[in-house]
Each structure stands twice: as structure tokens, then as C-alpha cells.
Amino acid sequence: MKFFWEARKVILLAVLIYLVLKAVFGFQLLSQYIEQITLFSFIVILTSLGLNVIYGYTGQFSLGHAAFYGIGAYVSAYLSKSLGVDGILGFMPVLFLSGVGAGLVGYLIGIPILRLRDDFLAIATLGFGTLVRVILDNSDRFSEVLGGSRGFVGIPRITNLELAFFVTVFLILVTRNIIFSRFGLFWRCVKNDELASQGIGINTSRMKLMAFSYGCFLAGIGGALYAHLYTFLHPSNFDILKSIDFLIIVIVGGMGSIVGTIYAGLIWVGFIEGLRIVLPAEMLDLRWVFIPLFLIALMMWRPYGLIRKGG
């Protein structure tokens, strides 16, 4: 078990960053709002990393990533509310279960749809995303507490700097260890050439399923942290536009690059939230005019990523 020893430099860096953040937030040098979006950026990084595993490393294009993020959020909120969880210790198993729940749904839906390729996979994942949205909109029919289209209210606020930061760092290390192992190598083989992968004995459907459910697991954890940061969930937080957010982060950061995803996640949250401060409210809609233009320009100019080129 050399998990910590091998990652000692990253862990040291992480502790330093944590101490700086703790000091900055502790002495209230920055507003509550900045603290909130800082935590949110960790969640975005974690969830985008999940999509990077699925799309960037394994080449399985998904337009429904936000659905798994939403599943994690709703599962955790439901669990913590019905079990009366309000502390970090009690929350840890809930957090884990939400990730597993999202991963399990990803596994089950992946069995049929991962046989599809490229654009057909895109439309199937998009379809799944819409289906989840329909279910969330009608969720009050199953249980009043879920709130349906009115939204899920009154979730305890549990996510704090320590939880968001260290869970994210830990899962980044776990992801890195998988990527730099035979499994990560097989994922990249599958992305490069599925037939050749089968030809050397890689069980491609198993590898795709593994990457897909692991990516969904990360999204589920991200969703659970999100639910307990903002304490309110609405089905519209988990629709196709959200999926496209994550997609843009993966593409900007570079497909198949962990560091790129981290930078891109930070830039993205800073940019989107920064615009909220700079632009007056009525101009905010302009964001979604420029984001698609940026996406199109990116596809023409550097389709493999802005920050890092991935293989």
C-alpha cells in the first residue's frame, strides 16, 4: 500500500492550498459568496473528471452526464433528510452511497447503450438525460419530499471546505492511479481502436462499462456535495445545458488530461460566476450566446483541447 507515499508531493501541495484557503476564509478576507463558489468549483472539477474518464480517456461520448450528477444529488438529499443526517461523519456513508447509486444507474444503463457509437451514443445519453429530467419533474408523485418541479428544499448544509476539498483531492488521486494502471491503459486502447483492443484480448464492453460507471460514480459524489452545499435542488439544475457545461470543461482542459480538467474547471467557474458579478442581471443571458460560439470556435481551432492535447 503505497497510496500516500507515491502521492506525497500532491498531498503536500494540497495541504498547503488547504491551509491558505482556510486562512483566507477564516479571517473573512473574501465574501461568503466567493467561499461558496470556491467549494462549487471543486465539485465541478470532480464531476468533469468523471466525464473526462468516460469521454476523454475511453472515448464514449455522453450528453447526459448531468443526469448522473442529479441522481447523486437527489439520492444524497433524500437519504440525509429521511435519516436525519446533519454531521460530516454521518454524511460520509450517504456520500459514498450516492456515488454508488449514480454509478449503479450508469452501469445498468450502460449495458445496453454502450454498444452504440459516437452520435448514436450521444442521442441515447441525451435521451436518458431527458428521461431523468422528466422523472425529477414528477418526483413528487413518488415521494412528497422530493418536491417534483417545485424543487427539493430544506437539505441540511453539510458540505464545507474540508469535505469538498479533501474528497476531491482523494478522488483525483484515485482516478490518477486508475488511469496510470492497466485499466487506464485499456480504456485508452478502447478509445483508439475497439477492434484492435478486442484483438489483443481486452474485453471492450467490460472496460467501457467500467469507465462509464466510474465516471458516473464521480458525478454522483459531485452531486451529493452540491446538494449539501446549496441546500436546494431543482430539476432544471441537471438538464442538458449542465451536461454541456461539463463537456466544455473537458474539451477546454484537454481530453484525457487530469491537470487540464482541474484548470479548466477553475477557469470555468471563475468565468461564469465572475460574469455574474461584472454583468448586470439582464445581460446575464448573453453568457449562453457566447458560450456556444466559443464551443464552435474551439471545435474548428483546437478540437482536442485548449490547455492540453490528449491522446
Binding site: 459516437d118 456556444p292 464551443l295 464552435i296 471545435m299
Partner: peptide, 9 residues
């Protein structure tokens, strides 16, 4: 495909 999504949005 991503471009098409971009155009649509």
C-alpha cells in the same frame, strides 16, 4: 456533432 449542439444553443 459538438458543433451542431453549439449552433443549436
Amino acid at each position: 456533432l459538438i458543433t451542431a449542439v453549439g449552433v443549436s444553443l
